[in-house]
Amino acid sequence: MNPAKIARFGDSERYFICPICHDALHLDGTSLRCADRHTFDIAKQGYVNLMPAAKQSPFYNKESFANRARILEAGYYDHIRDAVLDAIPSAADFAGPYSGERPAILDVGCGEGFYSRAVQRANPQVDVLAFDISKDSIQQAAREDTGMAVKWFVGNLADLPVRDGAIDCVLDVFSPINTAEFHRVMKDDAVVVKVVPGTHHDEQLRELAREQLRNTDYSNEHVIEQFCGHFDVLSMRTVSQTLAMPPADVRTFAHMTPLLFNADIDALDLTQISELTIEARIIVARK
C-alpha cells in the first residue's frame, strides 16, 4: 500500500475513538487499534471502516454514487461548492489557542467526497475528516483522492467515532443533523456550515414528476428552524443557478437525485427538461 494512504492516519489518537469501547485509536502498522485491541484495517483505497456493521440504503449504491460523481464533475454544483469554500474561511476562523496543532474540519455524510476534496485542496493547512455510512461512497471518495490527504472513514452519525471536542468546523452538505453529536465533537468555539436545498432546487423535475410525488410543495424551512434552534447563526445566504443540461445529463440527474428515489423515472418524459435549477441555502453558525 502507498505509504501516504497510511500516513494520513498517523495522528489518529487526536481524532478517532473505537466504535466498540470508545477508547482512543492509534495507528499500528496498517490498522487503527485501541488499548482493548479492537482493530480496524486501513483499506487499499485509503479509508478505514469504523462502522463494520453498517447497512446502507438500497438507493445509495455504487451506481447512485457514480451518477452523482458524473453530475458533480460536469460542474452543475460548482456554484454551491464555491459558496461552501467561501464560508469555510470565515466559519473556520479558528480563534482559540491551538498550540500549533492543525485545525480540523469534519464533513458529515460526505458521499463521494466532492466537497471534502475541494475543502482540503483550498485549505491544505487543515485536517479534513470525512465520513459516510455508505461503504461504497467512501471507497469511491478515497479512490478519487489523488492528494491522499483526507482522513476517510465509514461512520455512524448517531454515534460518531470521533473524540469529544476534537473538531473546529463541521461541514454538513445536504445531510441530516444530529445536534447532540455535533455539539459533542465540536470545540467550544467551533462552527458549523450547513447546506440545505433551496425552495427552487430541482423545480423543473419536481413539476414533471408532480403526480408521483407525495409532497408537491418543497420547503426545508422546518430543517432550518430546527438547526437555528440549536446553534447561533452568523450568516445565511442563498445561491442559485439555472443551467442548461443535455438529455444524457438530465437522465443521469434523475437517477441520482433523492427527489425521485420512489418515482417511476421511466414514466417521465425527461425530454421536456432542458435546464435545471440548482439552489441551496448556506448557513454558518457557531456552537
Rank of each mutant, 00 (worst) to 15 (best):
P161Y: 06
E144N: 09
N156P: 03
I177E: 14
G155Y: 10
A166I: 05
D217Q: 11
P197V: 11
T179R: 06
E207Y: 09
D202F: 14
E144D: 13
E207Q: 14
P161W: 06
D164Q: 09
G198D: 06
P161F: 12
E144M: 08
D217W: 08
N156T: 08
R214C: 01
H183R: 15
N215Y: 13
V170Y: 00
N156C: 12
P161S: 03
E144T: 00
M148L: 11
D172R: 07
F182N: 06
G155L: 10
T146R: 11
S175L: 00
P197H: 08
E207A: 15
F182M: 08
E207V: 13
D217F: 12
D189R: 14
G155W: 10
P176T: 00
D189E: 14
L160G: 06
T179L: 06
F182E: 07
S175Y: 01
N178K: 07
A166Y: 09
T146Q: 09
R184W: 10
L171R: 02
D145I: 01
E181C: 02
K187L: 09
I177V: 13
P176N: 02
A209I: 05
D189V: 10
Q140W: 02
Q212D: 10
I177F: 00
N178M: 02
N215W: 12
E207D: 12
G165F: 03
A158K: 13
L213E: 10
L171W: 05
A158S: 14
V150E: 11
R206A: 05
Q212F: 13
C169K: 00
K194F: 01
N215V: 09
D217C: 07
F174R: 03
R143S: 13
L171E: 06
R214P: 01
T146W: 05
A158W: 14
K194T: 12
I177Q: 14
K151I: 07
V170C: 13
L160P: 03
D145C: 04
P161R: 02
I167F: 07
V185N: 07
P176E: 05
F153R: 05
R214H: 09
L205C: 00
R214E: 15
L157S: 13
A141K: 02
A149E: 14
D164E: 13
T216P: 04
A149Y: 03
N156R: 05
L205F: 15
V195I: 15
V150C: 05
K187R: 15
M186V: 02
M148P: 00
V154P: 03
W152C: 03
G165N: 15
A142W: 05
R206N: 08
L208Q: 05
K194L: 06
R206T: 11
E211K: 12
N156I: 06
G147H: 10
G165P: 01
A141H: 04
D164V: 11
C169N: 04
V162H: 07
I177H: 10
V185G: 09
I177T: 12
V173H: 00
K151T: 00
D188Q: 15
L157T: 01
A149M: 08
F174A: 04
R143G: 13
I167W: 09
L160F: 03
V195M: 07
M186N: 03
W152T: 00
T179N: 12
A209Y: 08
R163L: 14
A158L: 13
V192I: 15
G165L: 02
W152F: 08
D188M: 11
